[in-house]
């Protein structure tokens, strides 16, 4: 049960390559891996799509950090090379924590647990919010949906079925 994912918003002043997509200034994408979609694996913008199509969605917890160009390069590398999904420790919370931790400072690193699960990430994100910055922490933060859904790497335009 549950889900975990990443959003990235471009504040560069011009377009940016994020994962395998080109994103306009001021626009966002989400990335996450899914095991209950056809096909399974890495999707772009599936979270906003799921919300828009009325797939059940609860309130998330989330926290943010800035990305420099060199951080984005690391994040992009991780997004484009982790496109598969597996139930045990290759699931949505594995992917989200891997991408986040690839650039996070030590005190910002999340822990999805021995068996990676979204519920463990919820606790970890709350803890970072308390320890590092409540101002960067949010509950029920809006899920961006500025672009349609894409699957895999290189990204192929298609819609998931849940």
């Amino acid at each position: 049960a549950g889900h975990a994912w990443i959003s990235i918003t471009n504040y560069n002043g011009s377009s940016l390559k994020i994962g395998g997509l080109t994103v306009d200034d001021g626009k966002s994408i989400t990335v996450g891996t899914w095991g209950n979609t056809d096909p399974k694996g890495l999707w772009y913008n599936a979270e906003g799509y799921a919300q828009s199509t009325g797939v059940y969605w609860g309130d998330s917890v989330s926290i943010q950090r800035p990305l420099r160009q060199q951080d984005l390069a690391v994040v992009n590398q991780n997004i484009t090379t982790h496109t598969s999904w597996g139930l045990v420790n290759n699931n949505c919370s594995t992917f989200a924590s891997l991408v986040w931790n690839s650039v996070a400072t030590e005190d910002e690193k999340v822990d999805a647990g021995m068996i990676n699960l979204p519920g463990n990430l919820v606790s970890s994100i709350k803890e970072i919010g308390a320890n590092v910055s409540w101002s960067l922490y949010a509950e029920g933060y809006r899920v961006p949906f500025d672009y349609p859904t894409y699957y895999g790497n290189p990204p192929i335009r298609k819609n998931p079925t849940f």
Binding site: A1, A4, V61, P118, G119
Partner: peptide
Amino acid sequence: MSVAVMRIYALG
């Protein structure tokens, strides 16, 4: 200088 903001979300 930052060019983007990343957010990690979890629910469940």
